[in-house]
Design a protein around this nucleic acid. Structure first.
Length: 444
RNA sequence: GUGGUUGUAGCUCAGUUGGUUAGAGCGCCUGAUUGUGGUUCAGGAGGUCGUGGGUUCGAGACCCAUCUUCCACCCCA
């Protein structure tokens, strides 16, 4: 049998993990500073909890888990059973939907507004490619139970805080689903909102011409497309966009509301120089109802490193209505990719050990091991070479595992302890027993 | 899901139009030399050429299938 990890999954070795933890620690620290509390949910949910929440494409990408037992026996058509006949559970696709399931389920116990952060893997049955995996880590912060726009402001500040602490230069796109709804109303295509916004969202990739072409292909009428055209022009600075929207959408209720929200948020965030209003931003998840965000690293071509928005009605799908929420997500793998691409990943993240105890001869073994025990007792990071191997081999090993020092004790050599600094190549000798205070001094 | 791409020692790769025992560098192991490694020298191990079929007198090289890698589309973190 061939050793092979599943497609789109990865193993993380010591080096890789130290980098991941560096980033995770910073994200986590920011979440805590902004007063979010951790939550973990199961890696799989009942299939009906997830299906229908992410759009048709999303449903296809949900990893379904086979029912246990002889599930085919009760299938109507055994050669072509339906999904719900063979699968009743599914792997987590994101963290937002399980969270809203949790909120609905624990409604009585929670104090609102309820803030939580969650750092866990999610799974998508996608084809892997650059910056895309089938298992990857998401880091989410959400707050539910308040309609206050200050929450949006806080979320954007949180983005700024995290990426600032990682020294990663970003731009944040800001839009509002109400504006998109208003545009569709003004253009008379409100019944095709999702379809239209999805196409509009591609403008950065395929350009204005590409969007126009696709709109035609999808049989939007000439008149409708003509009315939509101002949307393409709104790629300028935030102030101009807002004033244009005010004129264009006129007295459309949603338009006014959406524009006001965007304006409010922009005026309150700590660093609005990072934020671009982008009325083409749509985001695929169809549960967003108000503000939507997306974070990109302009210098790296890898898609977005984060996204989020307000969802007014997600919990009502689980029987709890009138609980509005805002959430943002950080894509750890893509953030890592950007940091590495831009040379922003610190290269001294791996912690080695303080000392490796080398072996000289059988007579000295007991005392050598005792030295290891005593040092560990005092909190020194110690490794003890298990075999009486050649010095060369032991030294090589010590260097590879990142030991700062080696310690050699030889009963035959006046019961002396020799401590050698591996990098400097210098060594000091001392009477056995003095090594403890020597290392404690070093650690100060 | 659609289209393309990749797969040769632990790692990075060579292997001309199909033709004898498949190579290199690095790494690894052994020995020598450095008081106790990092240098140098000598030697050595290690490959079902992704897998399974097929074409051929003969295939790592050609064909088919399958898996894997990476990429584009779709969609997304």
């Amino acid at each position: 049998m061939r050793a092979q990890s599943p497609k789109g999954t990865r193993d993380f070795d010591f080096t890789e993990l130290s980098r991941r933890n560096y980033v995770i620690d910073r994200i986590k620290a920011a979440f805590e500073i902004f007063s979010y509390r951790p939550l973990e949910t199961p890696s799989f949910e009942n299939i009906e909890t997830l299906m229908g929440k992410y759009g048709d494409e999303g449903d296809r990408l949900v990893f379904k888990i086979l029912r246990s037992g002889d599930f085919l026996r009760s299938a109507r058509d055994k050669s072509n059973p339906s999904v719900d006949e063979i699968a009743d559970k599914a792997l987590r696709y994101d963290l937002t939907v399980p969270f809203s399931r949790y909120v609905s389920q624990n409604n009585g116990k929670l104090t609102f507004p309820f803030k939580r952060y969650q750092i866990q893997p999610v799974w998508r049955a996608d084809k892997p490619q650059k910056g895309r995996f089938r298992e990857f880590l998401q880091c989410d912060a959400d707050v539910v139970g308040s309609k206050s726009l200050w929450q949006e402001v806080e979320m954007l500040d949180l983005y700024t805080y995290v990426f600032n602490s990682l020294n990663l230069p970003i731009r944040i796109k800001l839009n509002n689903r109400k504006i998109l709804a208003a545009i569709s109303e003004v253009c008379g295509i409100e019944n095709r909102l999702a379809e239209f916004t999805m196409i509009l969202d591609k403008i950065d990739k395929i350009g204005e011409g590409g969007v126009l072409k696709e709109l035609k292909e999808k049989e939007f009428s000439k008149d409708q497309i003509e009315k939509l055209k101002p949307a393409f022009k709104l790629r300028s600075n935030n102030k101009d966009i807002i004033s244009y929207l005010n004129g264009w959408l006129g007295n459309n209720e949603q338009g006014i509301s959406g524009t006001e929200e965007v304006n409010f948020i922009l005026n309150k965030v700590k660093n609005n120089g990072l934020i671009d209003i982008d009325i083409c931003l749509a985001r695929g998840l169809n549960y967003y109802t108000g503000s939507i965000f997306e974070v990109n690293v302009p210098d790296v071509d890898i898609g977005s490193v984060g996204g989020g928005g307000r969802y007014d009605d997600l919990t009502s799908l689980f029987g709890l209505s009138d609980v509005s929420g805002v959430g943002i997500s950080f894509g750890l793998d893509r953030i890592m990719f950007c940091l590495q691409e831009l040379g922003l990943m610190p290269n001294n993240l791996q912690k080695g050990i303080d000392v490796m105890i080398l072996r000289t001869n059988e007579e000295s073994s007991e005392k050598s091991f005792q030295i290891a025990q005593d040092l560990r007792e005092a909190g020194v990071l110690v490794d003890f070479y298990p075999d009486l191997a050649k010095m060369k081999k032991q030294f090589d090993y010590a260097e590879k595992i990142g030991a700062m020092h080696v310690l050699i004790y030889d009963e035959a050599n006046n019961k002396e302890v020799i401590v050698k600094d591996i990098k400097a190549g210098k060594q000091v000798a001392m009477p056995a027993g003095n090594e403890l205070s020597y290392f404690l001094d070093l650690k100060k």
